[in-house]
């Protein structure tokens, strides 16, 4: 599975994945993830690159009980569409939470976690996952 074990590919994506780099359409206002040169809603090419906020709410979620090979060791785990504070929607894994604790509208915050590993001796691909907000401050 060469595509899974590409180092340049993971490297190229690192900033987008670590920091959630998205786009904002200057024409229709849509904010989206990841960044690309044209707006997925209106097609405008007038798009600016922005770092997305790491706070949001669970819009929809499901529990993956039959995982792709690369995620087998995490089964069962929760994946969700997370709606960030500025309206961008990010597909992400939820972490530090049991499946039966998740609900639509749950407040979550982004943390850096392991996603995929290119085998036991390959590189580790990190990215942002979301988990229930840890209390006691932390407003950014």
């Amino acid at each position: 599975m060469s595509y899974m074990n590409s180092v340049p590919r993971a490297w190229r994506e690192r900033v987008t994945k670590y920091r959630l780099i998205g786009g904002r359409c200057k024409k229709c206002g849509k904010v989206f993830y990841p960044y690309r040169g044209s707006c997925p809603r209106c097609g405008s090419d007038d798009v600016e690159r922005i770092e997305l906020p790491k706070r949001g709410r669970v819009k929809y979620f499901t529990v993956v009980r039959s995982a792709p090979a690369e995620f087998k060791r995490y089964e069962p785990y929760v994946v969700a569409l997370v709606e960030l504070e500025n309206g961008a929607i990010v597909p992400a894994q939820l972490t530090d939470v049991d499946a039966d604790e998740v609900y639509e509208g749950m407040e979550v915050e982004g943390v850096l976690r392991r996603y995929r590993e290119q085998g036991e001796d390959g590189i580790i691909e990190y990215g942002v996952k979301f988990r229930p907000v840890v209390g006691g401050g932390g407003e950014q």
Partner: peptide
């Protein structure tokens, strides 16, 4: 972005 996050097609 989607597969990376661990989504299965069923998910």
């Amino acid at each position: 972005y989607t597969a990376f996050a661990g989504f299965s097609f069923v998910a």
